Simulated assay, not measured.
Amino acid sequence: MNKKFVLGIYDDEDVLLHAIENIRATGTKIYDVFSPYPVHGIDDVLGIKRSRLPIVAFFCGITGTSFALWMQIWMLGFDWPMIIGGKPHIALPAFIPVTFELTVLFAAFGMVITFFIVSRLKPSLRVNVFDKRSTDDKFVMAIEVKDGVTDLSALNKLLRTNGAVEVNEKEVVK
């Protein structure tokens, strides 16, 4: 399936941020913005909600903590109880290093796996680069064109009046 996009190419990040505000104010939906480096405040201007990944990290960390404590208590207290250095079978202070490490491990792997699932990233993913200059020195704003709904000349004029130095059309295989 092919999708058609109109690309507005910008030289300056401040001009881009103001353009995003103005274009969104007209009711035009911006598909995505590509930047050669992170732009402070662009998520707020684009209306992107805050990530829920920290919540996932917290629950994965709690799972790691619970697993570590359960594993050590079971192994050293019930399955194969041994007296090591005169300590009791269930010595919680001795369990702190392993518990910490498994908490961090579960949280890290949980966040990475969740990120890949939510982002739909997979080994066979084919990434479409809208404009190669977006990896070097230009900012690219992509707006999806819907057949029979979007007026290309009005969209072209809207991008140019909001500071785009160049406006292109591109068809992408999705």
Rank of each mutant, 00 (worst) to 15 (best):
A108E: 05
D32N: 14
A94N: 14
P54G: 05
G27A: 03
I83P: 02
F100H: 08
C60V: 01
F139Y: 15
T26K: 15
I62P: 00
L155N: 01
A142Q: 01
G41P: 11
Y37T: 10
A91W: 15
T114V: 03
M141N: 05
I84L: 12
V145H: 03
G77C: 11
T63F: 13
F116N: 11
L92C: 01
G163A: 06
I84T: 15
F109S: 08
E171T: 15
I143C: 04
K87W: 06
I83V: 13
T135K: 12
F67N: 09
F67T: 13
N156F: 08
F115N: 09
G61I: 07
V39G: 08
I84F: 05
N128Y: 09
F100Y: 11
I42H: 08
P97N: 07
S35T: 15
P54C: 03
I90E: 11
K122A: 10
G163Y: 02
V33G: 07
R24P: 07
P88D: 10
L125Q: 11
W80P: 05
P123N: 14
L16M: 11
F100E: 08
V33A: 04
F59L: 00
C60P: 02
N2G: 08
L159V: 00
E21I: 03
L125I: 10
L155T: 00
F116H: 06
A108Y: 03
L121I: 13
T161V: 13
R24H: 09
C60I: 00
